[in-house]
Simulated assay, not measured.
Amino acid sequence: MLKCDFQYQHADFSLNVELEMQQSLLGIVGVSGSGKSTLLKNIVGLLKPDQGYIQFNQHILVDTRQNIHLPMHRRKITLIFQQALLFPHLNVKQNLCYAEKWLAPSERKFQFDDIVDLLDLNGLIQRKARQLSGGEAQRVSIGRALLSSPNLLLLDEPLTGLDVQLKQQILPFFKRMKDELNVPMIYVTHHLEELEYLEADTLQLNHGQLQHN
């Protein structure tokens, strides 16, 4: 599914990754500054490894020896950030539909109504993004990501900044996504209990080095 063997160097920080993902949900846990976001940004294409390769479903995304660096928009990989980056002047439906408008109908993996039901967004459809709570906004962000029909979904500490009650409300949605959608996910966090709840195979990222947890 996903194979990575690369090095990324920036200032005094070095990330060395050797990873082979075959499961539907891979969890990566590590403290702040361990390189979790840097890892995801290399996979999605926001950063470029100094050496090595990244391959997904037999497609080479990066190979420094062959001078291959596939642009981000051609990778069909979506990254969900710690904070929901919604268009504040648009309502929820418009934010969700923005992800679909660049796709031909034949490329769409999910139906709009199915994603709205999965994430329990029916009561929010006409609300402006700026009127949403943190947890509501993050669910919309997840829905928009799914409606972009990614082949791989990357979640960068998606519950950061939410209180315990909101985390407990949103984690079941991730569990449903794992169980009901055929989209592989990499979920990074510094809270191991989130990955235990999701029953994710887990790796530890420590000072730029991946280790089995």
Score class of each variant (00 low, 15 high):
L192T: 10
F87D: 06
K178S: 06
E157I: 00
L181G: 15
D120C: 00
L171P: 09
F112A: 10
K101C: 07
E196G: 07
A84L: 04
G123D: 09
I77F: 08
V116F: 01
V188I: 12
D156Q: 03
A99Q: 06
L96I: 09
K175V: 00
R144D: 04
P105E: 06
F173Q: 05
D117V: 04
A145P: 06
G135I: 06
K93A: 11
E136K: 01
L103C: 14
F110I: 01
L205G: 13
Q209L: 15
L124T: 11
L210Q: 10
S149D: 06
L121G: 09
K178G: 09
L85G: 03
N91E: 05
N91W: 05
Q209M: 11
L86E: 07
Q169T: 14
K128P: 00
S148W: 06
V183F: 03
I115E: 06
W102S: 15
P150L: 02
E193I: 02
G161I: 00
Y197A: 13
D163F: 00
N95G: 01
L85T: 15
E194V: 10
Q131I: 02
K109G: 13
F81K: 09
M185A: 11
L210P: 11
L147Y: 07
P88V: 02
N151P: 08
K128H: 11
D113G: 03
L166N: 14
L154I: 13
Y197N: 05
N91S: 01
K109A: 10
D120T: 14
E136T: 00
A129N: 07
L103F: 04
F81V: 02
L159F: 15
P105M: 08
E157P: 02
G208N: 07
G135W: 01
F110W: 15
F87N: 03
Q204Y: 11
D201C: 07
I77K: 08
D114M: 05
E136D: 15
L181D: 08
D113H: 12
L96R: 01
G134R: 02
L146V: 00
V92F: 00
D179W: 03
V140R: 11
D179V: 03
